Amino acid sequence: MKKESKNIKKNKIVDQFEFDEFQKWKIEKEKERIKTHVPTIYGYARVSTEEQHLEPQIKQLKNSGAKKIYQEKWTGTTTKRPIFEKLISLLLSGDTLMVTKLDRFARNTQEALTTVEDLNKRGIKINILNMGYFDDSPNGKLMFTMFSAFAQFEHDLIVSRTQEGKAYAKKYDPHYKDGRPKKFTEEQVELAWELRKQGNTYKMINRKTGISIKTLQRRFNELKLKDSE
């Protein structure tokens, strides 16, 4: 038992030593990166849904001089943007962060101003192509606050109009259903369900009907619930 306890203690010391060595290695690598750094223009492209395309933004960023481009598909309502956060952490003094529009850079006024302040303190330029460069000067802050506020106002207005439209449709349209319309009819799904009951695999049904496996699984679960009621 004592021997086992000694081994555990020894392993902890070794683990701590390896961790400390790794931390030293990281610090040295970062110093080397800063020392040999060449100021670079980084582009960032983002869309909010899987259906949207990144290519137009990427092309615009390249044409405007971006040398390295980071991209991601992420909803505008989530608080997480891992690719953007990674890019921000990589930027060094003298670099430029380029985006096509303000809403690609931040989701609201406060976030935009906080990010701008942080990047300016680190000596990083921000170029929003449909506005221009933003810096830490009083004029730069004023202009950026104004444009950010307008972008937030526009977003809130769209949300408000969408909600009003849904409320009106729910009240006056008896056939209105919230959410996206279903791509496949009930008859198509029921046919697929019959194929499943006959022993066909999801892949076989997908080839025969064109309905994705995820959709088949979801719709079949709905049918099972109906049958059990």
Rank of each mutant, 00 (worst) to 15 (best):
G165K: 00
F105A: 15
P138R: 11
L225R: 12
Y42Q: 04
H155E: 09
K10T: 13
M204V: 00
V159Y: 12
K3A: 13
Q110C: 00
K214W: 04
F105Q: 03
Y168Q: 04
M1V: 10
T100C: 15
K86C: 09
G43C: 06
H155W: 13
K62N: 08
T162I: 02
K86G: 02
K67L: 02
Q217I: 03
V38K: 12
K29H: 13
N127G: 01
R219A: 02
I211K: 07
K12Y: 01
M146Y: 06
Q188E: 12
Q57H: 01
K26E: 14
M98E: 11
K101V: 08
T40Q: 01
K214F: 07
D227Q: 14
R207W: 00
L91A: 06
L87A: 10
T209R: 02
T114G: 05
R218Q: 01
L54R: 03
A167L: 11
Q23R: 10
F19Y: 10
R207Y: 13
K62Y: 05
D15E: 14
V159C: 00
A106M: 09
R207E: 15
H37N: 04
I205G: 05
V47H: 04
A151Q: 01
Y172N: 13
K3N: 12
D173M: 09
A106D: 08
K24L: 14
N63A: 14
A169D: 00
T115V: 12
E4V: 07
E4S: 01
I128M: 02
G140Y: 10
D103R: 03
